[in-house]
Nucleic acid binder design. Structure first.
Lengths: 211, 211
DNA sequence: TAAATTCCTGACCATTTGGTCAAATTAACG
DNA sequence: CGTTAATTTGACCAAATGGTCAGGAATTTA
């Protein structure tokens, strides 16, 4: 019987193993080629199984895509949840930025997957953006707003500050190819992301106008 | 006879009109759905002509895509060329940032088109990135480096500073849907980009650490 | 106006691709 | 071991899609 038909039947070992294998392969392919650019055959090949067998676990291409998105979303939102209202503002924002940059370094596919989805109008995850993401951002924007009010930060709009952090850090995952075209293999060296982090925090904290 | 077969025959009025119509329609569609996500039929419908007629002007889907990319590339690089080595560094970078942000506001499709292309590995424009783009960036990075050396700017890496400017400004085109999900219709108001610009220049110039 | 050229279209084709299905194979279990 | 359920596969289908082509309509040119 099809495993996804019988709601929450007991999950077999084989089932768990194959589903994981599929999702792992799918993340890579979807992140590179987008939803429409990806074929089921590609995923099946990368997951080392036949197409009908893959479709035995996920009935439709869309099901795989949604599963991959959901799986990555949690991980993606975690860093922001850790922004501590009681911590030192500069340190907290520094930690957050650094964490996001690390994610761009260690798991660029996740970033590219979302970039693709959003660029194409976010047809599958719009409700998440308007739901849990918006709630989380609203909450943390309030925290930042409070920091600004109490004079611990320069007067900036909290939302746009968050957008700036997202933009700069995710850029290192999404546009890495452009960076490599300009800087060469340097972008694959170990100290590249360190340099990036230094520049980002210098600009964010001090600004480029000499004091 | 097919207009693209006879190299540089005299361009007809009809030809010029239809080619422009096609490229305009194609920009929109390609920017939204990416190369593989776009069908020739979609472009033909938006350009108000039949598919065979469209293929009379551009023999292959790829030809349209490349034309659209090339057409937008020049416009895209212009602002950076205007960074004046003899101007005031803060003013020059402010002008550049503001110009790029304006482009995200007025022509977000162009930004999305490139984002798509680069996300997918830049298969069509890699040579441009490694060529004229790299040259231009190298040149302007040298200018910024000089500004830093002479103490007119905080000590930052020129390349990463340029990347930061690209990231923050283009984010307002590429991720507008996410912003709208979080902020609502505010993002379509006239003063939204003004607020964005203010935040960006405050952070870039002053930093978020209070003086 | 008549010939030549450009422009346009409906019909058509080959390939790709998402998805199905019956039947074979393997694993699980009493 | 034998029965039952889960897994895998090759063959197949229908729709979508990139692209072709012969010929008709419109436009330019002589």
């Amino acid at each position: 019987m099809n495993p996804r038909a019988g709601q929450t039947k007991k999950r077999t070992r084989i089932q768990a193993k194959n589903e994981a294998k599929i999702l792992e392969a799918a993340l890579d392919i979807f992140a590179t080629f987008g939803f429409r650019g990806t074929t089921i055959d590609q995923i099946a090949q990368k997951a080392e199984m036949s197409k009908p067998n893959l479709l035995y676990y996920f009935r439709r291409k869309e099901d795989i895509y949604i599963s991959v998105l959901e799986r990555t979303l949690d991980e993606w939102l975690t860093p922001l949840t850790e922004l501590d209202p009681d911590g030192d503002p500069i340190k907290e924002i520094g930690k957050y930025t650094s964490l996001k940059l690390q994610m761009s370094q260690n798991d660029p596919t996740a970033s590219r997957l979302f970039a693709n989805e959003i660029l194409h109008g976010a047809p599958m995850i719009e409700h998440v953006l308007k739901g849990s993401l918006k709630d989380l951002v609203d909450e943390k924007a309030a925290v930042i707003h409070h920091w600004v009010k109490s004079g611990k930060l320069t007067k900036v709009d909290p939302y746009h500050l968050i957008f700036m952090i997202w933009a700069t850090t995710q850029h290192y995952a999404d546009f890495k190819i452009q960076m490599r075209a300009i800087l060469g293999d340097e972008v694959d060296q170990a100290d590249y992301f360190e340099k990036a982090g230094n520049t980002i925090s210098t600009v964010f904290f001090e600004g480029i106008k000499p004091r």
